[in-house]
Simulated assay, not measured.
Amino acid sequence: MRVEIWTDIACPWCYVARARFDEGLAAFAHRDQVEVVHRSFELNPEAENGTVPIIDAVAAQYGRTREQQVAREEQAAAMARSAGLDFRIGGRVFGNTFDIHRLIHFAGTRGRQNELMDLAFRANFAEERSVYDRRTQLGLAVEAGLDEAEAHAVLDDPNAFAAEVRADERMAAELGASGVPFFVLDRRYGVSGVQPAEMFTRALEQAWADRPAA
């Protein structure tokens, strides 16, 4: 069975939902027969990298006050901590995730996609390091077990794995996903948003039971 997961490294709800999915998958009896494929989704594809605090940028984007956005950050932080994740508030900046998505696709060709995604989410939310910075991206790639020269070549070539990122985004649109996190089980069932681990387990069980007969 295949599970496809659309996320964005800049999305706090994806950070939490991914951990809860992993917990739900661990409780699934057939977990060893589940292939997990990570798909790209950009929440802000037109964003430019800079130094604008994420709280101010997102508040302006959605017409919220700064206080309202801080409250949402605190809500996300509480959910993350309940899932055993660290989450800091106030130090992240707004940026474009296209390059880190390209790098994640490259990591998939080397069997290190999960490792890089874990490190990128942690760097962004637990450490408040800029995942938009080239040096940070290369450091994460090396820490994930990728060859530094190869990772550098991918980042230096704007076309490297760009088509794969765009294909994921088109696929998300075709499936009706307007936001993330978004989970698709065997192209038959969809689960969106931050759900309890138990719900992910039930969804996996349902999808497994409804598989076409061999």
Score class of each variant (00 low, 15 high):
residue 1 M to H: 12
residue 5 I to N: 02
residue 9 I to D: 03
residue 13 W to L: 05
residue 15 Y to L: 05
residue 16 V to I: 10
residue 18 R to K: 13
residue 19 A to K: 00
residue 19 A to C: 07
residue 20 R to G: 03
residue 31 R to K: 15
residue 36 V to Q: 02
residue 37 V to G: 09
residue 37 V to K: 04
residue 38 H to E: 07
residue 42 E to A: 14
residue 45 P to S: 14
residue 45 P to T: 11
residue 50 G to T: 11
residue 51 T to R: 13
residue 53 P to Y: 05
residue 56 D to Q: 14
residue 57 A to R: 12
residue 58 V to K: 04
residue 62 Y to G: 06
residue 69 Q to C: 07
residue 72 R to N: 10
residue 73 E to H: 13
residue 79 M to H: 12
residue 79 M to A: 15
residue 80 A to D: 05
residue 82 S to N: 15
residue 82 S to V: 03
residue 83 A to H: 05
residue 87 F to T: 01
residue 89 I to K: 09
residue 98 F to W: 08
residue 104 I to T: 14
residue 107 A to P: 00
residue 107 A to Q: 03
residue 120 A to V: 02
residue 122 R to A: 14
residue 126 A to Q: 08
residue 130 S to L: 09
residue 131 V to S: 12
residue 132 Y to W: 14
residue 136 T to S: 11
residue 137 Q to F: 02
residue 138 L to M: 13
residue 138 L to H: 12
residue 139 G to T: 04
residue 140 L to S: 00
residue 142 V to N: 01
residue 144 A to D: 03
residue 146 L to C: 06
residue 152 H to C: 11
residue 156 D to V: 15
residue 157 D to K: 13
residue 157 D to G: 11
residue 158 P to E: 03
residue 158 P to T: 07
residue 158 P to S: 13
residue 161 F to G: 00
residue 162 A to G: 05
residue 163 A to Q: 12
residue 164 E to N: 06
residue 168 D to F: 00
residue 169 E to L: 05
residue 171 M to K: 08
residue 175 L to I: 12
residue 177 A to N: 06
residue 178 S to G: 13
residue 181 P to I: 08
residue 183 F to A: 02
residue 184 V to W: 06
residue 185 L to R: 05
residue 185 L to M: 07
residue 186 D to A: 13
residue 187 R to A: 15
residue 188 R to C: 10
residue 189 Y to G: 04
residue 192 S to W: 04
residue 193 G to M: 09
residue 195 Q to D: 01
residue 197 A to I: 06
residue 199 M to G: 00
residue 207 A to G: 08
residue 207 A to V: 03
residue 208 W to F: 04
residue 209 A to K: 07
